[in-house]
Every structure is written in C-alpha cells, then in structure tokens.
Simulated scan of single mutants.
Amino acid sequence: MNSVIFSFFSGSGFLDLGFEKAGFDVVFVNEINKSFINAYEYSRQLMGHSIPKYGYHTGSIDDYLEERDECSLAESVKAEQASGKLVGFVGGPPCPDFSVGGKNKGQAGENGKLSQSYIDCIKKFEPDWFVFENVKGLWRTKKHREFYESLKSELSNAGYVLDNRLINSLEFGVAQDRDRIILFGIKKTKINSEAKFEWEKYMKYPNGVAFNFDWPGTNKFGETPTFPADFPEDLTIQYWFNKNEVETHPNAKAHFTPRAGLAKFLVIEEGDTSKKSYKRLHRYRYSPTAAYGNNEVHLHPYKARRLSAAEALAIQSLPKEFQFPQEMTLSAMFKTIGNGVPYLFSYGIASTIKDYLEM
C-alpha cells in the first residue's frame, strides 16, 4: 500500500483502526480531547500498533490553519508525497450541530464550524485524497444540506473529484442502526480513468437488506426470548457480546449505576427502544445508534443495568483486544464510543478506497 494517512478528529482511533487493518499506515494523529487521545495511545500499544511517524497532537485543527502548532503539517505532507506516497486526510468533524437529535445549530455552531475548518485544511495542505465523515442530518436537513453542498463546491473548485454516499452501519455487518455520510475526494491529477469507486463491494447487507428480516419485537424483562429462525445472527447484540467476551473484558464493570435505584430498569421490556430516553436493547436484534449522551440511556437486554463500556465497544464492532485505560472516566469512555465510527464500517470503507487507489 503506497498511501499514508493523516488523521484528524481522531477520537480514540476507531476509524483509524479500520484503515490500518486494510493496509494503510497512519502517520499523524490529531485530537483535541486529551482523554480520548490517551485512550488512543493506550489501545494502540496494547494491540501492537506502532507510534505514528509524526506523532500524536492535541489541539484544534485551526492551529494548523493559523500555523500556531509547532509541528509543520505542510512539511510532513510534502515529505511523504516527495517519497512517492499518496497522502490521505481522514476525519469526521464533531457533528452535534448537524444531528437531528442534537443542537441543530449547523455551520454557526462551535462544532459545526469545524467542518469548514477541515475542508479549509484539505484545501491548504492538498492531500492526494481525503475522507470526510459526518451525520445524516448534514445530508437530509435542508439548511444543513445547503452548507454541505457549498463545502463540496469548494473542494471541486480546489481540484478534487468527489463521490459520496449515505451509509448505514448495518450494511457493513455492524449490529447497529447508524447512518453516516462518507464523502471521498481525490485530486483530478491522481485519477485512474478506468477506476470505479465501488461503494457496495465490501457491504454484506447493502441497500437496506438488513431491515427486511423478521426481527423480534419485545419481550417482558426477565423472560428468555426464542431464537429467531432465518435471520442474520451476526447483526445481533448477543452475537457481538459473545464474540468480544464482554463478561471478562477489562472494561466489563465500567457502567453507570442509577442514583434512584433499579425500579425503572425492571419494567422496561427487552427490545423496547421506542422511548426517547430509556431504551432496552434486544439480545436478538441490532442496537439503535450508539448514542449515550443527551439523557439517552441504553439498558442491557436481560440485566437490570446500563450497558458497560465493554458491551458498547462490542456494539461498535471493535476487536475484543481494544480496551480503555482503567483511569479513564465513564463519561469520557461513553462519549468517545458514541462519537466513534464503527470498526467494521471503517474497514469496509478503507478496503474500498484501497482497491480504488491500487487500480
């Protein structure tokens, strides 16, 4: 693989891990949240990944635009390109300002502005290709879509050819109903005229196929539901709990405990995800979007408690070897999990890009 990655808004590295599994070399990592980047370093070391060539950087992406950072991003990018490598920028700017269930402030919000900063960074440092990841609200909400289209126009005018798709994580075999935009861009000068970007090549359940199965409804809490026939077991919560051995995972006991007792945890049926706040997952169904903030509480399918970090990581399809440091706060754990791109989703996109670049 003759391509390297400069990673922005890296969180705890879920997106980057998928790209590394596909064969890319992550040489630069930027994340403003110190707790997240500490977890990134910790997990990488445990999993045997090397330290990025240009290191880990905590700070705002605006530091590079205004040249306030001691690292010369321009020099690093040019050095890799001079050595014959294709340089890719990969990032998903924080998205609550575009989320349907979030702040909805759009491009004027503090987080919304970071999408423009990322595009400005691409235009300034001119990677050979890039990935921009964000929530479906940027695609489906009229005022946000106008902003998204303006970003695409800027990139086109800067010499990039673009392709984008709204993708559900279920399409890549993740047990989670989670929509995300993926925008891929490549310099016109780097295009192979015979290459085609095949979005569905690595999708196991493309185009909504996963929603067509006869999924179970709800069961009274404490009852054992019947295992359904003729449906994809790999899209169920229980499959991933078993696969990741969540009961013995180092983060198995990392879960919030209720202040007001267990009463509410005992009456919500297994599989009842209809409420705005308390949602109990079903062991034989996929999870709703792994969002653990804004008073959204996801309950274990058959235990009277909230999900553990180990279980939430499994829902994000992370390898069982991935773990958080024990000193990391619960709030930080669940925030970075909810912000992260599912590992299998990332691996699928990365594999598609790899094939495209190698044609």
Rank of each mutant, 00 (worst) to 15 (best):
A175I: 04
R145I: 02
Y205A: 08
N38M: 02
K123R: 12
V4T: 09
W199L: 11
L65C: 08
L86S: 14
M328R: 02
F211A: 13
S12R: 08
W139Q: 09
W199G: 09
T273Y: 04
T189A: 12
V90T: 09
G109H: 09
S76M: 15
Y54T: 05
T226C: 04
R280E: 11
C121N: 04
F132W: 13
T141Y: 03
A82R: 14
D177T: 12
H57P: 03
P258R: 12
L266I: 03
Y54G: 03
P325I: 00
D177I: 09
A314Q: 07
Q81G: 11
H144K: 10
K303N: 01
Y239E: 01
P288T: 07
G11I: 00
A310D: 02
S346A: 15
A263Y: 13
N164H: 14
E171T: 08
K85E: 10
S169A: 15
E41Y: 07
G92K: 07
Y205E: 08
L46Q: 14
S10A: 15
S153A: 12
Y343T: 07
S287C: 15
G92M: 07
T58N: 12
K124R: 11
N33S: 14
I237C: 00
P250G: 01
Y347R: 10
S156M: 11
A175M: 11
G55F: 07
H144D: 15
Q316L: 13
A310G: 01
F213L: 12
H255L: 11
K264L: 12
L281V: 04
K152N: 07
S351L: 09
D16A: 09
Y356Q: 04
L73Y: 05
V174P: 02
G338Y: 03
M328A: 08
L162M: 06
F334N: 00
R259A: 12
N164A: 10
N207Y: 09
Q326W: 02
A229H: 09
K152H: 04
P325Y: 07
K253R: 05
Y202H: 12
F184R: 07
V4N: 03
S10C: 05
L46R: 14
H57F: 05
V267N: 13
L235W: 05
K21E: 14
E31K: 04
